[in-house]
Design a protein around this nucleic acid. Structure first.
Lengths: 217, 217
DNA sequence: CTCCCGGGTAACTGGTTGGTTACTTTGCGC
DNA sequence: GCGCAAAGTAACCAACCAGTTACCCGGGAG
């Protein structure tokens, strides 16, 4: 094992400088990977963007693929963290549901890098994600919130019965993810810009309409 | 220009053998590109898969990127061709709509290579597609069918009014595309196989429910 | 039969790329 | 203020890869 494994004193925390370099490398890798994909990304370019050196990249992460996984885990963790701040328990079911849909759409639109990362990882059949200790254990707070809201709405008679929470969760992700992911080909085919704030607002409203329309009893 | 441009006798059609080689190269390229992406695909590997030689690949297509575009155009053409066979004019609006949703889902599930191709092209901001003379002019028969069905259903009072056909079209694509595209990461996170025929049937039914549920007046 | 050319092969090239090695600088404990 | 490990630099390397060049083969026209 290279000197990536600190051997100094048990698990001595990285010095502030080393930690900063590590973070800059992660940030640079996120940009490069999401712009060029895993195969298209260049290790030298990541090091250069981070204002660091390739040697440091390998000292911290060991390999291009390990760096990829670290970036992916950080991206998942960031999304899960934001999901955790969603407070929908106090809202009436329809408003709570609307909030979940809007949150998801806006998060996706604001983070196209995450979308690119996911697409790329799926091209690789999730081989890296499967090896991750963290991510599979990182259960989505949004899915849990969705299940709770669904149960409340059903009990109150304002939502249809028998809705599969996982399927609905996937659909809510889908209406935002697909739009952001395929924005360029869609814009080319429709000959219209889908990335303006106005277009995003239209799409967001549509996503809410579809989900709440479907959920009517 | 290399000898890719036949100069023999005006536009003498490719000989049968040459045409067969070209087709084998296209087929091999579709497999390689959809498995590895544009950057990850290897030109030598494509030639080998096709039982041909790199020289022939360059004679027929000129460059890796031109081959990519040719593959992409063929994939779009194949989908548009199948869409053209959709006969929904004679069906009542709800059944017609259901057929559109089911067709789209099944086509997407049966053609994950097309999904991979689209994702990859979007990573490249649709730069190749924009250069294509064909694709932007290849208006989707399914979108046209959708508009007609929507108008009929609205007039008959069985669909809600004011539905944006393009938004709905994107959503119908989305519920299938996202599921197929992100199948591996989703399966990893949910710890369940989403690619079995049973799982596909559940998803298909959900897609129909969402769209028809939303469209109720 | 033989000339000729479209279709095909294989070896080569030069720039790139992930990863490594030998060496220098920085800063903290003593 | 010094010793030494952690942090950083730059040059290097072997494998790889898109694209090219020099050459060969088979079959149809004359």
């Amino acid at each position: 094992m290279p000197d990536g494994a600190r051997s100094s004193r048990a698990d001595a925390p990285l010095s502030a400088r080393a930690e900063a370099t590590r973070q800059r490398l992660l940030d640079a890798a996120l940009v490069e990977f999401s712009e060029k994909g895993l195969a298209g990304a260049r290790v030298d370019e990541i090091a250069a963007r981070a204002g660091a050196n390739k040697r440091m990249l390998y000292a911290h992460f060991g390999s291009k693929e390990a760096l990829w996984l670290a970036v992916l885990e950080a991206a998942y963790a960031a999304k899960r963290a934001e999901e955790r701040d969603l407070a929908v328990d106090a809202l009436p079911p329809e408003q709570a549901m609307q909030r979940l849909v809007r949150f998801n759409f806006r998060y996706t639109a604001a983070h196209p890098e995450f979308v690119a990362l996911l697409n790329q990882e799926n091209l690789h059949r999730a081989t890296h994600l499967k090896r991750s200790g963290q991510v599979p254990a990182m259960y989505s707070p949004m899915l849990e919130a969705l299940q709770a809201v669904l149960a409340r709405g059903e009990a109150a008679g304002v939502f249809r019965r028998g809705v599969d929470a996982m399927q609905l969760y996937i659909s809510i992700l889908a209406v935002g993810h697909f739009y952001v992911s395929n924005m360029h080909t869609l814009s080319t085919i429709f000959g219209a810009g889908l990335d303006s704030e106005a277009a995003l607002a239209v799409r967001e409203a549509h996503a809410v309409d579809v989900v709440l329309g479907y959920l009517r009893p």
